[in-house]
Design a protein around this nucleic acid. Structure first.
Lengths: 202, 202
DNA sequence: AGATAGAAAGTAATAAATTACTTTCTTTTG
DNA sequence: CAAAAGAAAGTAATTTATTACTTTCTATCT
């Protein structure tokens, strides 16, 4: 348990590996992350990684699991604590922005996984994550319409797509500027326009 | 000039190379496109590519040039022909959607280039392309506000970011569904919400 | 408690495949 | 025929994964 220990238990190493990948993804193209780079970041040799993961894809798989649990848990909590659907929408957005501000590599990884040809497991995990996210948005948007908080003629499908695009646009802008902090600082202004678009402007 | 010719002039091969890369980018992660894959798509051996380009980055550079010329030219034409800033905004959007529907690999390549560490030439070209695009949007949004077509308190910076995010969201949705045609079919609904957000709803 | 066997975790070296790029020689074309 | 374009083969560097061996941790037994 001390800081000088050279051998860590498997579950801690697995957690540290995920963390290393998420960190590296913030600095470079996720698909260019090598096992050597991951190991180096952890202070290990490259081969040691394969004591804990059978393959590189298994590492990415663990990362996708990590993202799914953390992001959806935070989002669900934000929804629960909100007083109304419109408030929940805003809380989910801010939660999401907080998450990608803390882990700017995550949206890049998701985008990258979706681009992979074929049917890899990490790709399917990225798909289901975004689908589940979309379903929560859909529910929220429907509820908002029912309560009269959102425009009666709002297309929930389109509104969910734009919601995700809003985050994606902020991520892109931050990459352009080379400044991750812009995600958080630009978020309120961009979301205000979205809110007006769906009819929830005060 | 006939179809049976085995040797093509350099400029035609360069154009064909760009086309091959754009096509491949629609099918896989752009950063995973190899020179072997490009050559194979063109019916050439891998080494033959280097008769026309000194390096792989030079190929990507040519692709970014191609994208810049085509996209900005179409966008500028759409702006010129529009009667008002709000109409121009919609025309630019539809032009952009047409472009990425025809070439779904392009937004992926731009996103991918932005992620590259260091200062490569193709990366800088991607940055300037998006910046120029953003400037045109900014001008349009300012003009729209001046004419009273858009909300007086609209933040043009945020509106430009959301505009690009709108496209990005549609691209992401199409990757999720594995169906490129959804970009075009979902575009009007998503853009309608954007329009309402900036205050240009009829 | 202290010694110790055995499992878990790590290293170093390396194999096998793939990558961007080169070189040499051949074919095509004006 | 000469120059451009391409094929075929090769090179050096990387990448994932494996192997043989070493170190560290931990549970058990006297």
């Amino acid at each position: 348990m001390n800081g000088r220990s050279k051998h860590l238990p498997a579950d801690e190493r697995r957690a540290a590996t995920v963390e290393a990948v998420v960190d590296l993804a913030a600095e470079q193209n996720p698909s260019d992350i090598t096992t050597t780079a991951i190991a180096q970041r952890m202070g290990l040799t490259q081969g040691a990684l394969f004591r804990h993961f059978p393959t590189k894809d298994a590492i990415l798989q663990a990362v996708m699991s990590w993202v799914t649990e953390r992001l959806l848990a935070r989002v669900d909590k934000a929804i629960e604590e909100a007083a109304s659907p419109a408030a929940a929408l805003e809380a989910v957005f801010m939660t999401h922005i907080d998450f990608v501000s803390d882990h700017p590599g995550v949206p890049r990884m998701l985008f990258g996984e979706l681009q992979r040809p074929g049917e890899t497991l990490p790709k399917r995990m990225a798909q289901t994550l975004i689908r589940h996210y979309g379903e929560r948005l859909h529910t929220l948007l429907d509820a908002g319409k029912a309560r009269g908080e959102l425009h009666a003629d709002l297309d929930p499908e389109a509104a969910a797509t734009l919601f995700i695009g809003t985050v994606q646009g902020l991520v892109m802008q931050s990459m352009l500027a080379g400044d991750v902090t812009r995600i958080r600082s630009d978020a309120p202004g961009v979301f205000a326009i979205y809110l007006r678009g769906v009819g929830a402007s005060s």
